[in-house]
Simulated scan of single mutants.
Amino acid sequence: MTIDNQDNLCLRCHNREKLFETFKKCSYCSAKLCQQCWTELQTSDEYKVLIETLPKTSPRRICSTCLQTLYGHIAKKKLADDEDDYQLALAISLSQKEADKQRKHEEIKASSITEKKVDQRENLLDKTAEAIERFMNRAKSNYQRNRDVIGDTALLSAFILLQTCATELEQLKHDLDRQRQHFETLQEKLTTLRDAREALNILRYEHQARKRQEQKHADQQRKLLMMQKVADLRQLKHTQIANFQERYFHRLLEEEQESSERLKRQKKLLHEEQFAS
């Protein structure tokens, strides 16, 4: 906005001699600049660089002081935004690292649990084999010595141990059956998924083949249509040429007849003039 300076004082040059000068007013601080100072400010390289850093919605009539202040605010805001982005990226990176660490920990834990179960199964089998061997050896010893097996505490303890092992083996068998059923279910799902994928591939191939056939048929129809259009254009061309030739010959005939009649009239007039003379 251009206004008259009542004080006749420019903020930049402080010249009071410009009585009839018009002044520019800063949109932020309302400071007044004379036309010469405003032009010099706008054409300076520093002002151009700073004004380009401002948002497009910001006013463009700004004094150098307000411009530097705004540039400082924008720089601080940009620095704060960069710091926030850095903190966010750092948090995401740490979260990813924690997730990877947790996943590795879970994998190690699952592996250790599996190894522990395998060790327990092997220990149970070894324990069962040892109990069976002890029971059989004790029974053979009693048989060879003709001892009563009812009062043999060692044989009884071996039998109790075998019962305990049998219970654990039954539980192990139940767990293995449950795992087998789980894996069989997964195998069935994989088979179903494989069949579905094969069916989908077949449908995709048939769809592509049908699309190619339709495209081929459309190309043939387009080719036939173009050939028909070319034939129609040729027929139209021949018709127009024939009509043009017919009109041309008709016009030549008319011109020849007119020329003949004109010649006859001229001869008649000449004959009449000769007869009159």
Rank of each mutant, 00 (worst) to 15 (best):
254 E>A: 11
145 R>N: 07
184 E>C: 12
207 H>V: 12
229 K>L: 13
142 N>M: 12
39 T>C: 14
183 F>W: 11
98 E>W: 12
52 E>T: 13
135 F>A: 05
126 D>I: 09
100 D>I: 08
200 L>R: 10
181 Q>G: 06
70 L>V: 01
145 R>F: 08
257 Q>P: 00
6 Q>S: 13
69 T>H: 13
136 M>D: 03
222 R>H: 14
49 V>K: 12
158 A>W: 03
212 R>Y: 03
240 Q>A: 08
216 K>V: 02
70 L>H: 05
141 S>A: 06
143 Y>T: 01
77 K>G: 03
129 A>T: 04
105 H>R: 06
20 F>H: 04
67 L>T: 00
14 H>E: 05
16 R>E: 15
88 L>Q: 14
113 I>K: 00
96 Q>R: 15
182 H>E: 10
81 D>M: 11
65 T>P: 09
110 A>M: 01
135 F>H: 07
244 F>A: 08
40 E>L: 15
122 E>S: 06
203 L>T: 08
87 Q>Y: 14
123 N>P: 00
270 L>G: 04
69 T>L: 10
266 Q>C: 09
8 N>T: 11
192 T>G: 12
38 W>M: 10
1 M>G: 09
199 A>Q: 09
193 L>S: 09
92 I>T: 05
133 E>F: 07
246 E>F: 15
277 S>Q: 14
261 E>R: 07
28 Y>L: 03
163 Q>L: 14
145 R>W: 02
41 L>T: 02
151 G>Y: 04
78 K>D: 07
23 F>Q: 01
250 H>W: 04
130 E>G: 02
42 Q>H: 14
23 F>P: 01
97 K>E: 09
35 Q>Y: 10
266 Q>L: 12
231 A>Q: 02
202 I>N: 11
256 E>A: 06
265 R>A: 13
1 M>P: 01
29 C>N: 03
134 R>I: 04
70 L>A: 03
268 K>T: 10
90 L>H: 06
102 Q>A: 10
72 G>L: 06
193 L>G: 03
49 V>Y: 04
150 I>S: 07
88 L>W: 09
190 L>K: 06
255 E>Q: 14
136 M>I: 00
202 I>E: 12
184 E>W: 12
88 L>K: 11
161 L>P: 00
79 L>W: 05
252 L>T: 01
146 N>G: 13
165 C>F: 11
60 R>H: 07
249 F>T: 08
127 K>M: 05
59 P>L: 09
175 D>T: 11
190 L>P: 01
164 T>M: 14
221 Q>L: 05
195 D>A: 08
135 F>E: 00
101 K>V: 02
80 A>I: 05
126 D>K: 13
45 D>S: 15
64 S>W: 03
171 Q>T: 04
86 Y>W: 15
152 D>A: 00
53 T>I: 09
187 Q>P: 05
155 L>S: 01
113 I>S: 02
